[in-house]
Design a binder for these strands. Structure first.
Length: 271
DNA sequence: ACGAAGCCCTGCAAGC
DNA sequence: TGCTTGCAGGGCTTCG
């Protein structure tokens, strides 16, 4: 499931092959994503030059002179460069062929993803304008989290996964960051000290940076833009390990549900 | 304003 | 073996 590191990995894998090239053709096979892919997308993109590829949270933005293609991988989506002429598979919903015989293919079995055309300033788009800061930017630190948590009663894990607070921290990395910082995922967000938020912000930053370095976490069959799997999974301490032994103190890791999400933590290391 | 719950969708694993 | 059931989950929407 793509979280920020996986989206970043995809961006880095795809960008060198597409930026500066022109769209030769776009093909929509199944427009029924979270929101429908616009009917006119192929016409909008044809012949246009891709000026850049960037990321905001888990959204990818393909920049053109007359607008942006806004992409989201949902929880099962992937973008890959495939050889031109490769037969499309069952969930290959969108192809973007660019000059130089390069094909970018969007695959998303669960169709929680998104491919929208945005005119004007993309940061003003309803899906982007309320997003919190990037976790790897200077705007994200312990003081920021502490300030935003004033008066909040929700469990800190749900707080950390709220895109209005900070973008890109999904279920995997929230669990890992909380473990690393020694903070219980169940603790009310408003009842955590400034110092502990400092540790938590550092942990989130570290775990995300590490995961990006490793090419993301491969779960199920995530692959980056270059088709290679990520290697971060081997370093997960708590995610997906409920019932197993804590890597630090050997206690049995607990499984709880927080905000509809399964959450694993060590009741002894995390307070 | 806040927080909890519901919804979208399909692959996979577990259970019968 | 082949069916059914339940779970996974990002992020928006709805409800209280």
């Amino acid at each position: 499931m793509p979280e920020l590191p996986e989206v970043e990995t995809t961006l880095r894998g795809i960008a060198p092959s597409v930026v500066g090239r022109r769209v030769a053709a776009a093909v929509v096979r199944n427009p029924a994503l979270r929101q429908p892919i616009p009917d006119l997308l192929p016409e909008i993109l044809r012949g246009r030059k891709i000026l850049g590829l960037s990321r905001r949270g888990k959204y990818l933005l393909m920049a053109f002179r007359h607008g942006h293609l806004l992409l989201h991988l949902g929880m099962s989506g992937s973008l890959q460069i495939v050889p031109v002429g490769t037969a499309p598979g069952r969930h290959d919903h969108l192809d973007i062929a660019v000059s130089g015989n390069i094909l970018v293919r969007f695959n998303d079995p669960r169709r929680f993803g998104l491919a929208l055309w945005v005119e004007g300033d993309p940061s003003a788009h309803p899906l982007l304008r309320n997003l919190g800061p990037e976790p790897l930017s200077d705007a994200f630190d312990g003081d920021y989290l502490y300030r935003r948590a004033r008066g909040r009663a929700i469990p800190v894990k749900a707080f950390l996964m709220d895109g209005k607070v900070v973008v890109g921290v999904g279920n995997i990395y929230a669990a890992e960051a909380l473990f690393m910082a020694g903070v219980s995922p169940l603790r009310a967000a408003g009842k955590i000290s400034r110092a502990r938020y400092g540790a938590l912000a550092d942990a989130a930053r570290l775990v995300l940076a590490l995961a990006i370095e490793q090419g993301g976490t491969t779960l199920r069959n995530f692959v980056g833009g270059d088709g290679k799997p990520g290697y971060f999974k081997q370093q997960l301490h708590v995610y997906g390990r409920g019932g197993e032994a804590c890597t630090v103190c050997q206690s049995t890791l607990k499984n709880v549900v927080i905000g509809q999400r399964s959450s694993v933590y060590c009741a002894s290391c995390q307070r």
